[in-house]
Computed example of a mutant assay.
Amino acid sequence: MTSPFDTSPFDAEDLRVLDELRDLHTALDPMPPGLVECAQFAVDLDEGFDIARIERTEELAVTRGESARQITFECGDDVALMVQLQVHDDGHVRIDGWLTPPGSELELRTATSTTPVDTSPQGRFVIDDAAPGLVQFVVRTAGATVATPAIVL
């Protein structure tokens, strides 16, 4: 009988059993497509930043078969971002949003680009034709850089 403290390497039978377990788990609960890319995207910012948390999300009623949802992000008492996402029939997304504190810089970040977003003096903004896919919002205030969790448009 092998001791539970045996540190010898696995033998061929151990490796066969581990391969079968891996195959079983892969068949029963496969990794979602794009999971690795999503995780890499979510943490791939070039500088120090704080992470906002999702405070609230809700589905909204719209017309003509389009879908919409509203998400509120917060980071401490200083930064709040609310976005309303409306998916058009062609798949593109209209983003209406409000940002506090007003005067903060806002960027929409995708896997391939970072786009500055114009905000009004009150913190209101509109992105009329965003492509569907994984995005993050990055907020730059006088005291911090805050990134939202990655979301799928």
Rank of each mutant, 00 (worst) to 15 (best):
L35T: 07
L35K: 12
V36G: 10
V36A: 14
V36W: 09
V36R: 13
V36I: 15
V36P: 01
E37M: 11
E37S: 15
E37P: 11
E37G: 14
E37L: 11
C38F: 14
C38P: 07
A39T: 13
A39F: 11
Q40P: 10
Q40S: 12
Q40N: 14
Q40K: 15
F41E: 05
F41W: 01
A42P: 06
A42Q: 05
A42W: 03
A42M: 09
V43L: 14
D44H: 11
D44S: 15
D44P: 07
D44N: 15
E47P: 11
G48S: 14
G48L: 14
F49L: 11
F49Y: 15
F49G: 03
D50R: 15
D50E: 15
I51L: 14
I51E: 07
I51H: 06
A52R: 00
A52L: 10
A52I: 09
R53W: 00
R53S: 06
R53V: 10
I54K: 11
I54D: 02
E55N: 09
E55C: 10
E55I: 09
E55T: 13
R56W: 05
R56G: 01
R56S: 06
R56L: 02
T57C: 07
T57F: 03
E58A: 09
E58M: 00
E59Q: 08
E59K: 05
E59G: 01
E59W: 05
L60N: 01
L60A: 06
L60H: 00
L60R: 10
L60Y: 06
L60T: 05
A61K: 10
A61F: 09
V62T: 15
V62D: 00
T63I: 05
T63K: 08
T63E: 09
R64M: 03
G65S: 06
G65L: 00
G65W: 05
E66W: 02
E66T: 08
S67T: 14
S67N: 09
S67G: 11
A68H: 08
R69L: 04
R69K: 08
R69G: 01
R69Y: 08
R69C: 05
R69T: 07
Q70D: 09
I71S: 07
T72E: 02
T72R: 00
T72S: 06
F73R: 03
F73H: 02
F73E: 03
E74K: 01
E74I: 02
E74Q: 04
C75N: 06
C75M: 06
C75Q: 04
G76S: 04
G76M: 03
D77A: 03
D77C: 02
D77G: 10
D77W: 01
D77K: 03
D78W: 07
D78I: 02
D78S: 07
D78K: 04
V79I: 12
V79C: 12
A80K: 02
A80Y: 04
A80S: 13
A80G: 13
L81I: 04
L81R: 06
M82D: 02
M82R: 13
M82A: 08
V83I: 15
V83T: 07
Q84L: 12
Q84R: 14
